[in-house]
Amino acid sequence: MVTINEVAKAAGVSISTVSYALSGKRTISQTTRQRIDRAIRDLGYRPHAGARMLAGARTHILALSAPLHSDGHLPTHMRFVTAVVQVAREHEYDVLLLATDDETSGIRRVADSSLVDGVVAMGVSERDERVPLIRELGVPAAFIGVPDEADGLACVDLDFDAAARMALDRLADAGHRVVGMIGHPHGYLDRRQGFLARFEHGLDAAASARGVRLVRQWAEVERGSGARAIDALLDGEPRVTAVIFHSNEPVVEEAERRLAERGVDVPGELSLVAAAASYDPADLAVPLSGITLPLERMCRIAVESALANVGGGGAGGHELLAPEYVDRGSVSAPRR
C-alpha cells in the first residue's frame, strides 16, 4: 500500500505539504499541487475518505440504511439492496450497507467519519428516527418510503393508498361483497411501517365506499402461517368470496397450496388478488392478478435523488408512483 511518505518523496515536498494539499487547510502553489497530484496518480495513492472530504472531494460511496428485523423477509430485503447497488454502480458509486436494527447509529458513524457522500434509507416507519438525524447532520439523503414530517426530503414510494383502493375496487366490480385480506406480520404494525398504514387507509376507505365487508388475517413469519390464515378466512362466518394478499411470497405460496389441498377452485370459488407484491405474481403456481411493487424504479429514483443532493441539485419532495393493475385471470364473479 502506497503511503503519504512515498507521495511526498516522489513530489519532492514535505509530508505536511501533501497533507495540506489533501485537506485544503492551507494554500498550495499551483506548481506544487500539480507535482503532488502527479505523484498521487502515478503511485496510485488513495487517501482515506476523511481526507478526501476535507478537500471537498467525494468518496463515491453511498450508505444504504436497511435495518433487518427478525420478522422481515430476507429475499425481499435483498431485492431492494441489490437494486440500490445496481443503480449506484451505474453512477460509479459503491454502497456501504448499514443493516443493524439501530437505524441511527450507523448513519451518524459514517457521516461523522466522512465515509460516505450520502444516504439512502429503506424500511421507513411513520415516525422514522432517521428524519431528524438526516436534518441534524445535513447529509444528502433519499428515502424509499415516505415518513411523517419529511417535508423537503427526497422520498419515493408506491402510492399504497391508491393500490389498496384499486385492488378492492376490482373485486367489488366483479360483485364481491365479503373480502378477506392476508397481511404482513404484526411486527410491521408495531413498528408503524408507513406503507402499511397507507395501504390500510386505502383499503378501509374503498371498502366503506363500495359496501364491502373486510375480514383480516395477519400472517407471521413462521412456516405454515399462510395456510393457517387462508383456513381462518375460509372457515369464518360469513365466508369470504375473495382474498387480497398484502404479504410476502412464502405466505402466498402456502395459501395457494392449502387451497389446492382443500380443492378450492380459483377463481371459480375464490378470487385472489396480489396487492403491492414485491415478487412477480405471474410466477406463482396460480398466477395472480394484481399490482406489483415497482421496486427497481423506486430504488433508481431514490439513488439518483440522493446523488442529485450530493451534487447540490437540491432534489426533494415526495414522489408516489401510480399503481398498475395486471389481469392474470384470478378474479371472477362470486358463485354465491
Rank of each mutant, 00 (worst) to 15 (best):
E296G: 06
H77K: 00
G106F: 09
L307M: 08
A227T: 02
V124A: 07
A111W: 08
L270C: 12
E136T: 07
R46I: 13
G72T: 11
E220R: 06
A206G: 07
Y279N: 01
P294L: 13
H73Q: 05
I107E: 13
F245G: 10
L43G: 05
P140I: 09
S19M: 02
L68E: 11
I291D: 09
A209T: 07
A232Y: 08
A275H: 07
V13I: 07
A83E: 08
A174S: 14
L259M: 15
Y93R: 11
D94L: 15
L233E: 05
P132I: 05
L234Q: 10
R130L: 09
L320M: 13
A255M: 04
S330M: 14
G175T: 06
P75I: 04
V85F: 00
Y325P: 00
P281K: 01
Q217A: 11
I291Q: 01
A167G: 03
M1Q: 12
A172K: 02
E129N: 10
P185D: 08
S332W: 03
V139W: 06
W218S: 11
R210T: 01
L171S: 05
V212K: 06
G314E: 02
S278W: 13
G180A: 06
R257V: 01
G290I: 06
A57T: 10
G226A: 06
E237Y: 04
A306Y: 10
P75N: 09
A219K: 05
I107M: 13
A315Y: 09
A83W: 11
E254V: 10
S271P: 03
I144K: 05
E324Q: 12
V251M: 13
A51F: 04
V243G: 01
G118Y: 09
A150G: 07
A260T: 14
R262W: 12
A121L: 14
H77S: 08
P67M: 09
A150M: 12
S225I: 03
G317M: 06
R223S: 14
L234P: 02
R58M: 08
R328L: 15
D190P: 00
Y20S: 04
A302W: 07
D204Q: 12
T82G: 03
L233R: 02
L64P: 09
F195H: 12
S289G: 03
F80E: 01
E253T: 12
D148F: 09
S105E: 14
L307P: 00
P334G: 08
S113I: 00
L22G: 04
G316F: 01
L288I: 02
R210C: 10
P334S: 06
R328N: 03
Y325A: 02
G290C: 10
A63K: 01
